[in-house]
Nucleic acid binder design. Structure first.
Lengths: 343, 343
DNA sequence: CTGAAAGCGCTTACAG
DNA sequence: CTGAAAGCGCTTACAG
């Protein structure tokens, strides 16, 4: 394979300076038709494509953002990534995928790459409570936007779900179906999303008046296993429960395993609403009512906010909340009379 | 925020040449303890981090690969991306996420970025039949590895699933359960994966002898909608069918919608095996038997092969086949006697 | 062993 | 309007 053509080669072939070539390519110049023809010809015979690395170094920006997420194999983050990627490409940015598996070292490493100019900016999604190291590393970090989850104590700009209002509405829905003994499988303590959802849940139950009761709230990691275990505990210790709100699709999936094992039927025996709606919940039997995250909007808003930060034209609002939609399906039904959840 | 420190600043602060700093940082030099101390001190007081862009330009490589996939919100590709990313990070490479939505223009654009040195190499996954443009663009393209799907007519190195053997085994499994009227919802014609799976299916049925019959094979796009429509047609025109093999999870999900609508129960009324196993099939009712893709292995092998290409130490085999595993669950049962699939 | 200098391939302020 | 030259921040062949 021949050596790759550089702008210098084009300059020689077209008999104009590299300056002119560069300007022509970047549209900052108008040239006589004849010159244009010569350049175009040189461009195509040499099959010239600019070296983006050199361009970035010279311009002082990489036109690349880092998308930092815990796990791309998790459908929630995969869908978020898809919306971010689409928005980024539309705005002329590439997306470097940075998977952390929630390892703080990796998170810190990716934050540093903003300073080192590897990224123009970072969209940052973390899924574990911060021990202070993230907060610390974020001092003076520019061009940084949080997505989905906050870092406790930070005032970085961010785009989050309307957790409180969403879960409040979902819980209302459960209550309106007639349920009075309701439980929640919630996310980890110290995560903003979990905290807000927990709050929304508790307030909705409290607002329903005396007869209505929060049977239990479990703090779980956002994993299938945690949901499975919490459901076991719930059914053992609170068989009077008639409805459950799960704080994520994984928690729901985990609970479902437990319900299957015990022969408990969703809808008829136990009503359920889950948060996220990234799994094919409409195709479960019965279809599962869920509090859907608007990931396309979250991705778009986050990218816009980040571009605002990068270009130093910050959006008017540093914190955006994306509404959640309650998608009504068939997993919530009126509670059965005096029948308890026993094996 | 102060201007970012460069290697030159470090050189000044530590009172050694930039050459030495560079060599020290890259481990290609042994220095007296005292010098080391001075450098380390300068490094940390200046909070120096190398500019990866400059390094890449200078070295002529970016330590970044492009991962080209049709759609990251598709769990199949999300899981593939997760394994690739993990392998890449372990080998010191970053991964630039390149989503094409199967648009040829985007695919071509990303291929060009290898030449322009933006990527050291590309892992390429395409999902639509090539009209010749891809094949054409691939001439002389170095450091390129196909994943999951071939490009017809190309001899690029690649990592693919053991489609034929996998589907043959899955179909055998259906036949051994007693089915004699079997259908397939297959992927698009002209896609290697679909073609090989179709072949495996047909051969297994043929090998079962006269009584056993391929009722129908539908060529579908790999989408839920296509699966839904094909299932409608199948049930209308071939009500004698007792078992179906679906060529992807989306096709299965689509068929499931149709079955639901018609009140046909999987397992008891119609036996099913699907290919992929990226959806939570174990949690469906009944749990769905599937031909699982070993995506972790596929990602790892593909990355190793790509690194071989990049470093010009190609692996001994240019084409690797990853085995598929039949995961036995409960969606295949013996056919019911003389009962037909009617509404 | 160490460092000055050239080079990676662009962009752009500056001078003509 | 056009181009020579400096500069982006590194690496490394080369000379001392």
């Amino acid at each position: 394979m021949a050596r790759k053509a550089t702008i210098r080669d084009v300059s020689g072939a077209a008999n104009v300076s590299v300056t002119t070539i560069s300007r022509y390519l970047n549209g900052s110049i108008r040239l006589p038709a004849e010159t244009r023809r010569r350049i175009d010809e040189a461009l195509s015979t040499l099959r010239y494509t600019p070296n983006p690395l050199a361009r970035s170094l010279s311009r002082g920006r990489s036109d690349t953002i880092g998308l930092v997420i815990p796990d791309i194999s998790n459908p929630f983050f995969a869908q978020l990534a898809a919306s971010v990627e689409a928005a980024a490409v539309a705005r002329g940015y590439g997306v470097l995928l940075c998977v952390t598996l929630n390892h703080v070292e990796r998170e810190l490493d990716y934050i540093r790459r903003i300073e080192s100019k590897h990224f123009d900016g970072v969209l940052f999604s973390t899924n574990h409570p911060d021990d202070g190291r993230l907060l610390d590393a974020l001092k003076d970090v520019p061009s940084f936007v949080l997505v989905d989850e906050d870092i406790s104590g930070s005032d970085m700009p961010g785009v989050f779900a309307e957790n409180h209002a969403g879960v409040y509405a979902a819980t209302r829905h459960i209550i309106e179906a007639g349920h009075r003994k309701i439980a929640m499988l919630s996310g980890p303590r110290a995560l903003m999303s979990a905290e807000e959802r927990r709050q929304g849940f508790r307030e909705a139950v409290a607002a329903a008046g005396p007869g209505c009761e929060t049977v239990a709230v479990y703090d779980c990691a956002y994993t299938v296993e945690a949901g499975e275990a919490a459901a076991e505990e719930l059914l053992d210790q609170h068989p009077e429960t008639t409805a459950v709100f799960t704080g994520s699709d994984e928690l729901f999936l985990g609970m479902l395993k437990t319900l299957r094992r015990r022969g408990i039927r969703i809808g008829t025996d136990l009503s359920v609403v889950t948060c996220d709606d990234v799994e094919p919940l409409a195709l479960f039997e019965p279809p599962i009512t869920s509090l859907r995250q608007d990931l396309p909007m979250m991705g778009r808003e986050a990218l816009d906010m980040l571009i605002g930060e990068i270009t130093r034209k910050p959006l008017p609002r540093r914190h955006i909340r994306v509404p959640m939609d309650l998608v009504l399906r068939e997993s919530v039904r009126p509670p059965r009379r005096r029948k308890r959840l026993v094996r």
